[in-house]
């Protein structure tokens, strides 16, 4: 008889059962949520016939409209700012001369991943409250600033990974062929970094769009984003309208991820690194 070869998790007893269980636990609630967004009645758990009424309701709800616009504006600005910072930080840390405080900088960038979000939220609340009363400004700026900050590590990580995986001799070859530092960056480093930048920006955008905790603490009155609006709805009366909004968000992020997958695959085929 042939000997058992290598250890293979798939052959362990119960593997299929556990996998199926995890899959069901992760996806069943989402599927149920999506199904009930098409419920004709008010109930969240009792099926009363197919209808698009909640989508129509959400579409015409001015509060939802305003929250959506606010969410997108915050996410868009935060994405641009955090991606820019992330690219510069990754370049400073991955290229250029080594400088003092490089690891301190790493700790700074990754603060949002290391400090519990609720702690950051509370401290921001305190600081911003003080700033608001001092300078009198209470617009969207605070939310944008906060989102930009906590999105940086999400934009940073793919960029850094890409930079680390990049062959440094390519940049040396460019310099050897009479390219100045700026030309090396523009013609070689950045084009090769681009898929990482795109991935980082996408992660930052989704992270910002999704944020509840920090937004809830930092926002002024009447500055609900889509997620905090939904949270508020839960306290009042939960209707399938929330399901409808959540489903739209879900479809949106799936489309984003799939689109990115295709874009980066095409890039990859063209320019294999």
């Amino acid at each position: 008889m042939a000997k058992r070869k290598t250890f293979d998790t798939r052959r362990q007893a119960g593997f299929t059962a556990i996998a199926a269980f995890c899959f069901v636990m992760l996806y069943l609630p989402i599927v149920l949520m999506a199904i009930f967004s098409f419920n004709g009645g008010l109930a969240l758990t009792r099926w009363e016939g197919f209808s698009l009424v909640w989508y129509v309701t959400a579409w015409h709800n001015e509060v939802v409209q305003a929250a959506t616009i606010r969410s997108v504006v915050i996410a868009a600005v935060a994405t641009v700012v955090s991606t820019l910072v992330a690219v510069l930080a990754a370049l400073a840390m991955g290229r250029g001369k080594s400088f003092r405080g490089r690891s301190a900088m790493f700790a700074l960038i990754n603060q949002p991943l290391m400090v519990p979000e609720i702690v950051t939220a509370v401290s921001l609340l305190v600081v911003f409250a003080w700033v608001k009363t001092t300078i009198g400004y209470s617009g969207l700026g605070y939310l944008i600033l906060a989102h930009s900050a906590f999105c940086i590590p999400f934009a940073f990580m793919p960029v850094r990974a890409r930079l680390q995986g990049m062959d440094q001799t390519l940049e040396q070859a460019a310099a050897d062929l009479y390219a100045s530092a700026w030309q090396v960056f523009r013609r070689v480093t950045f084009p090769l970094l681009w898929p990482g930048v795109l991935a980082g920006a996408m992660l930052a955008f989704v992270t910002s769009l999704d944020d509840v905790v920090i937004t809830e603490f930092v926002k002024s009155a009447g500055q609900d984003t889509l997620p905090t609006y939904m949270l508020g709805q839960m306290r009042r009366n939960l209707t399938p309208e929330t399901n409808a909004i959540a489903t739209v968000l879900l479809v949106f992020s799936v489309v984003l991820v799939v689109a990115f997958f295709f874009v980066s695959r095409e890039k990859h085929a063209k320019a294999q690194l």
């Binding site: 062959d167 001799t169 070859a173 050897d176 062929l177 070689v188 090769l192 320019a271 294999q272 690194l273």
Partner: peptide, 20 residues
């Protein structure tokens, strides 16, 4: 002189062709 100002070119050990 920095590398880009030297009238010297290199054929790198791993070729280092620009993939894009």
């Amino acid at each position: 002189l920095p590398p880009f100002k030297r009238p010297v070119n290199t054929v790198f050990q791993n070729y280092a062709l620009f993939p894009h």
